[in-house]
Design a protein around this nucleic acid. Structure first.
Length: 586
RNA sequence: GUGCCCGUAGUUCAGAGGAUAGAACGCAAGGUUGCGGACCUUGAAGUCGGGGGUUCGAGUCCCUCCGGGCACGCCA
């Protein structure tokens, strides 16, 4: 059941404005009043057009109100016509407030339960192709909490777009070629030759990386050795290449479990080493068009001054390609392959200028699909001491955070003992631990920097993932104890809401689909977090104040079970979008 | 120097030009012979960094100043 109250209202208002004032509106804006007593929707259209029609906004609102209310706004359901609004009123200085009827809200409740796992989803994406590139770690050390934020954000956005009806491809791009990889390789060659990982292999490799960063401070020759190693690698020296394969292979092996723990997966992998020779074709076009030129050193530079940005190097003076060149080629290849409608680059805000430059170059090159590229920029994760730095030993590994959470949660789960089965206890601990981690990082606006300390994620109370998981488990428990499956007969049998607290839950349930849409439009999963937390609080208030199974009156029991089932469903669907899997007991 | 981002309660954060600026944590006081207390109820706590402007209306948009972060040709 696809119900779009807003589009019904849009049409109504547009028509009324057209009839009364002969103004053809493109769009009418609706909001939810901050105070729910005023209504569920409100429009400020009277104020908007007040100047144009030279009438006080209050009068306009009254006229529109009269016009709109000439006929009831109804929705046909079975043999009935359901009034959507119980009250439409005008208030100063000209707001028109719409309050949804209880009958309508119950219809929504009904639709939540019947739609089940698809409630909140839509076909708006029309199966158009969205590529989401995220994660992009360097395979020379383990991932830290900055990567974790990226992984959570990217995977969550992918889920959201999928739910909105887009055809999503999750892409991971490996920066696997360059001197940064040689750092780990070089130190392994010097101090670890022949050794096999005696710990998680990405951590094993990472130790050599840190070793390099430390030693290079006092030993300046190391840099020369590094350059020499990279030169050999570029030249195709078999031994060096073998080392490269071994080192990166270990890192990938280690990451498998990191990604699994974080509930992150990819549909396609791209490797920088496949692009090291490429991009030169693109550079040639740029030079032919006079966009780029060789400077005295021999490097090829794109001149972007007249577009208000700094110049960008496309080829080094030795003629080798650079990240930006490879990115140009990668985008082109992906376009040829997928003909995507959108390609998202989930990369932190420090590269905003970089993407502006690269996109501008593509525009000048005449790639007409350049406006389908979008940099999803987000804030960095820093430590209270400042930016993370492996040289200074100021890095928090993602695996370490997860492990700590898992330990805390395992203790908690074992003391609660909601199951006798060790395996299911372990699954519960893992899911709740990840819920704390993901939710902690995703609940803030992506644009905000995060100053990470363990308090950020090790809280299990209040506005946290575990709180939402707990609320879900509570709803499951109630439904299980009710001893019967929820059967939908007729959603209209109970025409009365028995308590204001229940009404607050109903007035939240209908918003879920639009919150998902908003999260997609803003590239901001925290929109969903905020919504779910609010819903959970409303439900818990009902739970604390009102008996459900012991309500006495069978009609009341039935209604409250519906309400419980609907809240459960929305929590589940919403949590899945932010990458959290629910548990029935915890 | 040029440009971008951020600044809201003690702390961490919501607020996509609207109506009386909201949560969580922490603090203080409570919670029924009841379905899960990882919960709920109540309270104290704010010159929305400062100043100007646009608007019927500004935490939100513009200008300016202050504070913090970041990016600026051969790293990714």
């Amino acid at each position: 059941m696809e119900i779009e109250v807003i589009s019904i209202l849009q049409e109504k208002i547009k028509q009324a404005v057209q009839d009364l004032y002969e103004i053809d509106l493109e769009k009418v804006f609706f909001e939810h009043p901050v105070n729910e007593k005023w209504g569920d929707y409100a429009t400020n259209i009277a104020m908007e057009i007040s100047k144009q029609v030279k009438q006080p906004s209050f009068d306009i609102a009254k006229n529109l109100h009269y016009k709109i209310c000439e006929k009831d706004i109804v929705y046909p359901y079975k043999d009935n016509k359901i009034k959507i609004f119980e009250k439409i009123e005008v208030v100063s200085p000209g707001f028109i407030n719409f309050k949804l009827s209880v009958e309508w809200l119950k219809l929504v409740l009904f639709s939540v339960i019947t739609a089940s796992n698809t409630y909140g989803s839509s076909q708006k994406g029309g199966k158009s192709k969205v590529l989401v590139e995220f994660s992009q770690p360097n395979p020379n050390k383990p991932m830290h909490i900055g990567h974790a934020r990226n992984n959570f954000l990217g995977s969550s956005l992918a889920n959201i777009f999928e739910f909105l009806g887009y055809d999503v491809v999750r892409i991971n791009y490996m920066n696997d070629w360059g001197t940064h990889i040689c750092k780990s390789m070089l130190m392994y060659q010097k101090y670890g030759e022949g050794k096999l990982p005696d710990k998680k292999p990405d951590h094993f490799v990472g130790d050599f990386y840190i070793m390099y960063e430390k030693e290079s401070e006092s030993n300046k020759e190391l840099e020369t050795e590094l350059a020499e190693m990279f030169r050999k690698m570029e030249a195709g020296d078999p031994q060096t290449l073998k080392l490269w394969e071994t080192i990166t292979g270990w890192v990938y092996e280690g990451w498998q479990s990191t990604y699994a723990d974080e509930n992150v997966r990819f549909d396609a992998w791209r490797f920088q080493h496949d692009y090291k020779e490429s991009g030169k074709e693109v550079v040639k076009i740029a030079m032919d068009k006079g966009i780029a030129e060789k400077d005295p050193s021999g490097a090829v530079i794109a001149r972007l001054e007249k577009y208000g940005m700094p110049d960008k190097v496309l080829l080094r003076s030795d003629g080798t390609s650079i990240y930006s060149t490879q990115d140009l080629q990668l985008a082109k290849d992906d376009y040829d392959r997928y003909h995507f409608d959108r390609r998202l680059y989930v990369v932190d805000f420090r590269q905003e200028e970089y993407f502006r430059q690269v996109f501008k170059i593509m525009e000048i090159l005449g790639f007409e699909w350049v406006d389908r590229l979008h940099h999803v920029s987000y804030g960095v994760v820093a430590l209270p001491e400042g930016q993370m730095s492996s040289r200074k030993g100021l890095v928090v590994n993602a695996d370490d955070v997860y492990e700590q959470l898992l330990n805390l949660e395992t203790e908690e789960v074992k003391s609660n003992r909601k199951s006798d089965d060790e395996d299911s206890l372990n699954i519960i601990a893992k899911r709740v631990a990840l819920a704390a981690f993901r939710y902690g990082m995703l609940k803030v606006d992506p644009k905000q920097d995060i100053s990470f300390d363990y308090d950020y994620v090790t809280k299990f109370e209040g506005n946290t993932g575990p709180y939402l998981m707990y609320t879900y488990a509570r709803t499951s428990s109630i439904l299980e104890k009710s001893g019967k499956m929820i059967e939908i007969n007729d959603p209209l049998i109970n025409p009365v809401i028995y308590d204001e607290k229940e009404e607050l839950v109903l007035r939240s349930l209908y918003r879920f689909p639009e919150e998902i849409e908003k999260a997609g439009e803003k590239y901001a999963p925290n929109v969903i977090c905020n919504y779910l937390f609010d819903l959970a609080q409303r439900f818990n208030a009902v739970y604390a104040a009102l008996p459900i199974l012991n309500a006495g009156n069978p009609d009341v029991i039935e209604f409250r079970l519906y309400l419980t089932a609907a809240v459960r469903q929305v929590l589940k669907n919403g949590l899945n979008l932010i990458g959290i899997e629910v548990v029935e007991k915890m």
